[in-house]
């Protein structure tokens, strides 16, 4: 499991009200009971605050699993993609 995945799990757990232990890289956001656009926005704000990155909302909304979000964050952290200023 990637370092990002390790630190991301408790964050997703807090927003989704699921225990961190139950979240795997292939866990789909839509499979998390109370998931919706408001929860997605809260997670986005928390991720950006925690990792000091800014994600492109279009790319973010296409991410389907926790693992995909972890790699997107890792990519941003390593400067692999252009960042967008809000």
């Amino acid at each position: 499991m990637s370092d990002t995945m390790t630190t991301l799990r408790p964050l997703v757990a807090r927003v989704s009200h699921h225990p961190a232990e139950s979240l795997a890289p292939d866990t789909r956001f839509t499979a998390l009971g109370s998931w919706g656009s408001l929860a997605a926005m809260r997670l986005l704000a928390a991720v950006e605050q925690t990792y000091g990155v800014q994600l492109d909302l279009r790319a973010y909304m296409k991410l389907e699993t926790v693992g995909e979000l972890a790699s997107e964050i890792s990519t941003r952290l390593s400067g692999g993609a252009e960042t967008h200023a809000g």
């Binding site: 499991m1 390790t6 630190t7 799990r9 408790p10 757990a13 807090r14 961190a20 795997a24």
Partner: peptide, 12 residues
């Protein structure tokens, strides 16, 4: 995912 996952980091 292989082996046992590391203990999840906790949040403040």
């Amino acid at each position: 995912m292989t082996g046992s996952p590391p203990a999840p980091a906790s949040l403040p």
